[in-house]
Design a protein around this nucleic acid. Structure first.
Length: 157
DNA sequence: GCCAACGTTGGC
DNA sequence: GCCAACGTTGGC
């Protein structure tokens, strides 16, 4: 399975700088089955994660993070006061899962989407596909390596 | 703010 | 099981 991932966050909701402040966070609120399956089944402690800022101008990869805790039930799904409450999720048979991530480093330079699209070696990357909405997605090792090198983090691989 | 892409819901 | 309606994502 993949050892490399990308997660999307809207920077006005939860920016990478906030993750650095917090030291770690649980990635709650994901309500998509494909993304759920990745978090529940495939993400392992130590896997590396590109932290992508969506819905901003321009969208960009802000930093590198890693999985610090493997998939466990997303308790916000049965918290009636949470925006992420799901009446169909039963604590005895949780429907939604999350992982914990912690920050490693900022990208320098920041790699924005137009720049990524211009990189021939990244053609075919899921993130760059039209209509790709998945907020948790695997990244090919070659793509990951190229991105880290371009973002000044090649030494960390 | 627009709208294309896509996932989900629910009637049949 | 099909598919139209609807809601959301997210780039532009």
């Amino acid at each position: 399975m993949s050892k490399f991932w990308l997660v999307k966050s809207e920077p006005h909701v939860y920016p990478f700088s906030q993750l650095k402040e917090d030291g770690q966070t649980h990635w709650d609120g994901v309500r998509n089955y494909q993304a759920r399956n990745f978090m529940r089944d495939s993400m392992k402690v130590g896997d590396l994660v590109l932290f992508y800022h969506s819905n901003t101008k321009p969208p960009h990869i802000a930093g590198l993070a890693k999985i610090s805790k493997e998939g466990y039930p997303d308790h916000t799904s049965w918290d009636i006061n949470s925006n992420y409450f799901d009446a169909k999720s039963d604590p005895d048979s949780p429907r939604w899962f999350m992982v914990e991530i912690e920050p490693i480093a900022d990208f320098s330079p920041i790699l924005d989407l137009p720049t990524l699209k211009e990189m021939p070696a990244l053609q075919g990357m899921a993130l760059l596909a039209r209509g790709q909405r998945l907020s948790v997605q695997p990244v090919e090792p070659e793509h990951f390596s190229i991105i880290c090198n371009a973002g000044g983090l090649g030494d960390l691989l």
